[in-house]
């Protein structure tokens, strides 16, 4: 028995070592850097001053807290709105064969599109020099393209939210379509025969049935949008700045001392996402136990 176990451990060790070194090694080294350990520039002390600097120093605290606020706003708003659009879209077209085929095709095309391309597309369409602004100006709806509302590179992150909605709604849509198709229409028909009107069928039947899948997908989308860099870098403003952009700028700073702050910020981002994921698993486990 003991020999068998040793054999299994020995055979698993090489691949596990590679995974641990490549994955956790990087995170661990980043964590060490966030604690100020940077042998390359002669820093060997372990402390939390980078975390303190980022969150509470006069220089960075305002930037950090407004950035965190913007991050939470953008991630929550884009995740929620993408889920809502996808849900209503999926409900609207699931019974129409033609619309379903067309939408599936469009969304399937959207899925492999890089976020960077979508962000550039947003600039082309929604910026003050973009297609919509020029079109509105040509139609006489606004005096000049400059009168078009600031939707891209705005301090409220509307452009970023729009880009994420466009991109992530496709992900939600594909998940929801598969859930709705597997559920069929029997539950709704039953509720209807029991007297439920359209709103009640949505509120008391469809929503509870799709919620577990929608919630799981939301966690994935939220975690991604919370930690992603390229869309906020392209569509965001200098202040307030989303945390991943701020972290990257710390990292690019020619002063290598700033790297600890960049790593501290990255670890904070990862921690927030992990807390949310743990909270999600706690919620689902509690529900399973309750069931």
């Amino acid at each position: 028995m003991g020999g068998e176990r040793l054999k299994i451990i020995l055979s698993l060790t090489p691949p596990l070592l590679i995974i641990i070194t490549l994955f956790f090694g990087g995170i661990f080294y980043g964590f060490l850097q966030s604690l100020g350990y940077q042998p390359a520039i002669g820093k060997y002390d372990i402390n939390f001053s980078a975390y303190y600097n980022v969150m509470f120093s006069e220089r960075y605290s305002k930037l950090f807290w407004t950035g965190l606020g913007l991050n939470l706003w953008v991630s929550f708003a884009s995740t929620f709105l993408a889920a809502v659009f996808a849900l209503f879209g999926a409900l609207a077209i699931r019974k129409t064969f033609f619309a379903k085929t067309v939408c599936n095709f469009i969304y399937s095309l959207n899925l492999p599109m890089p976020h960077l391309v979508v962000a550039v597309g947003m600039i082309f369409v929604f910026s003050q020099s973009g297609l919509l602004a020029r079109f509105a100006s040509q139609l006489g709806l606004i005096n000049s393209p400059g009168d078009f509302p600031v939707l891209v590179r705005d301090k409220y992150g509307f452009g970023i939210i729009l880009a994420y909605i466009w991109k992530e709604a496709a992900f939600f849509f594909i998940i929801l379509m598969s859930v709705l198709q597997s559920l069929g229409e029997n539950f709704e028909e039953l509720a209807q025969s029991l007297g439920a009107n359209r709103w009640q069928r949505f509120r008391y039947v469809i929503l509870p049935l799709v919620m577990p899948n929608l919630f799981s997908a939301s966690i994935i989308v939220f975690a991604f949008s919370f930690g992603a860099y390229e869309v906020p870098a392209l569509l965001g403003v200098i202040y307030p700045q989303m945390l991943p952009v701020m972290a990257f700028e710390f990292f690019l700073n020619p002063d290598l001392n700033a790297r600890s702050e960049g790593m501290a910020l990255s670890i904070i981002i990862a921690l927030i996402v992990m807390i949310l994921v743990v909270f999600y698993f706690w919620l689902t486990q509690a529900k399973i136990r309750k069931d």
Partner: peptide
Amino acid sequence: PTEKRGVVMVFQNYLLFPY
């Protein structure tokens, strides 16, 4: 409309709401 007919159907696979 179905919801106002007063005609209630019990489906073959019961369809109790799982939640």
